[in-house]
Design a protein around this nucleic acid. Structure first.
Lengths: 105, 105
DNA sequence: AGGTTATATAACGGATTTGTTATACAGATA
DNA sequence: TATCTGTATAACAAATCCGTTATATAACCT
């Protein structure tokens, strides 16, 4: 159970097509930040800020491996179920989003 | 099933504490616009615009009775289930929101 | 017709969002 | 150490959001 304020803050984070797509991709497993940079038609700093926003909302966890940072859904977030329920309502996203680097997965 | 763009547009409408509260109240049944005006600490035009935004998103239906307009959730919206599932995650809202007028209900 | 009440629209201002470019930092490698 | 790659931050601009006040419209009531 959440307050109106808490839920509306999370919905604000979710209410963006770029972030929704990123989340949908992470639903399929951990994603390297660089794969998002390759995948979307926006700059690397823009990607970085989208990731930061979701991380600060507690929606993401990160794992550093060498110079690469891998992001995944935070299954322990109090909003995790809400997020995946929403993602399950989205048509499968184009998977033509492969990382061009050596980030190993 | 929805597209990322369609879902993010609806989430943008939902991602506001005033609108979420209004929707939660309408989950309990039809509400007169005037009851929102009495209930929230914002101006009547602000209320009117929140209602318009939700109406335009297809989330609400309206019924005119004399000079009063009553709003309710649109159960035929393709997003209806998503909306109520989200509302069900919200703590019950303070019901001290009674219309001061003769709008009858 | 004239006044009152309920709701909608117009015009505007400040805050927030979301992109950009430039730059800094962290880690790997020659 | 110097440089390259991946990521984050700073500073800024355009667009959008959300409130305001003023005004218009619609329906009711003398």
């Amino acid at each position: 159970m959440h307050t109106v304020d808490d839920l509306s803050k999370v919905l604000k984070v979710l209410a963006d097509p770029t972030r929704l797509t990123m989340l949908k991709q992470m639903q399929g497993g951990e994603q390297c930040a660089c794969s998002f940079v390759d995948c979307f038609d926006i700059s690397q700093p823009a990607i970085s800020r989208h990731l930061k926003m979701m991380r600060q909302a507690g929606l993401l966890l990160e794992r550093r491996d060498k110079q690469w940072i891998h992001y995944r859904l935070n299954e322990t977030s109090p909003f995790y179920k809400i997020v995946v329920d929403l993602l399950d309502n989205i048509e499968t996203v184009d998977a033509s989003c492969d990382c061009e680097t050596d980030c190993a997965i």
